[in-house]
């Protein structure tokens, strides 16, 4: 039985600018099992949104997918025609965006906008679509849906609009929902409501969700699996528990160290030194090497592959490869740990 709804393998997306090719996504692989939530975490410019747009093939005209495979239910989406992709979008795969204030067209009512994809994909009449729109508004927790359906976006608050966006995304019962920083533009209390709503709807309809965020808190709260992205690459992919308990990649460890936690006493948070590399001038070798406390000449010379272990957890770091000799010391939240090379039973030990 096929349990992997989406399998992305070695995805590469480039943008062609006046200054040459910019490899925005350069080797992204992950698996999204049916009914689960995958978090894609990374800094601004790490390629997480581009990854999402690549899945739906919605790149700007100067962007192009130059390699890899995106298998959705066993079919490679990259081989689909424009028309076939339009059938997928909003139907089997839906997307919600970061900015609810500008994601709705100001000249149409909420109802008209929800109805649009229902009429397109499910071939319902306007009247039936309107009834369905009211149901959907009710589903996403908007009070007085029969009145709201006739309102225009400017009459709704940010949180309300994001609920409307979710209603639009859910209109055709998608199998997969891509949420691109759905809560970034909202304030904290509304954030929690929206995340709760997405999670509730997910369990109710058995959807798979890709949650794109830079917030590890959101990841901890909502995801089953996590892909950590750095400079256009997945540097670590694992299940949520492993990621938080035994982060492997020095970048992930750096992220954890810069996150305040209530269960550990620590005097000072440790930031990751340096800056994200300019995508036009990527370092040779590992892209994190200029900022990595454990980097060696090998790291600076050669790019590590994404190493897979038996549990399906991947990491892109030389420390865990056969080429690494000896041990590496890493500090996870003030606690010194030894990261051992390939083949040892305990990759991280106290």
């Amino acid at each position: 039985m096929e349990t992997d709804l989406l399998k992305v393998e070695d995805l590469r997306t480039s943008f062609y600018t006046d200054e040459g090719e910019v490899k925005a996504v350069d080797g992204v692989s992950f698996i999204l099992p049916k009914g689960k939530t995958l978090g894609i975490v990374g800094e601004s410019g790490s390629g997480k949104s581009i990854t999402a747009l690549s899945i739906l093939n919605l790149l700007a005209s100067n962007g192009k997918i130059v390699g890899g495979e995106i298998n959705f239910k066993g079919k490679n989406l990259l081989s689909f025609s424009d028309k076939e992709m339009r059938e997928i979008r909003g139907n089997a795969i839906s997307m919600i965006f970061q900015e609810p204030m500008t994601s709705l067209n100001p000249v149409f009512t909420v109802g008209q906008q929800i109805s649009e994809s229902i009429i397109k994909h499910q071939k319902l009449s306007k009247k039936e679509a309107n009834i369905r729109s009211i149901e959907l508004l009710k589903l996403v927790g908007i009070p007085s849906p029969d009145k709201r359906v006739k309102q225009y976006p400017y009459e709704l608050s940010g949180g309300m609009r994001q609920r409307v966006m979710i209603a639009i995304a859910l209109a055709c019962n998608p199998e997969m929902l891509i949420a691109d920083e759905p809560t970034t533009a909202l304030d904290v209390t509304i954030q929690a409501q929206i995340l709760g709503l997405i999670r509730g709807l997910q369990t109710r309809f058995g959807m798979s969700v890709i949650m794109i965020t830079h917030d590890l808190g959101v990841v901890a709260e909502t995801c089953d699996f996590v892909a950590v992205m750095y400079a256009g690459q997945v540097v670590e992919y694992s299940d949520i528990f492993t990621l938080f308990e035994e982060p492997k990649h020095p970048y992930t460890i750096g992220l954890m160290n810069s996150l305040p936690r209530h269960d550990v006493e620590i005097e000072k948070l440790e930031p990751i030194r340096g800056n994200v590399p300019n995508p036009k001038e990527m370092p040779t070798g590992c892209r994190f090497s200029p900022r990595c406390p454990a980097a060696t000449d090998l790291c600076r010379r050669e790019m590590p592959e994404l190493l897979k272990d038996d549990d399906g957890n991947d990491v892109r770091c030389w420390i865990y490869s056969e080429k690494w000799e000896g041990e590496a010391e890493v500090t996870v939240y003030g606690e010194k740990r030894i990261a051992k090379g390939h083949g040892s039973e305990t990759i991280l030990s106290d």
């Binding site: 839906s94 649009e116 397109k120 994909h121």
Partner: peptide, 12 residues
Amino acid sequence: LEYIDAVKALGA
């Protein structure tokens, strides 16, 4: 504007 991306993502 984002709503153009949004309707594209809906298959328009």
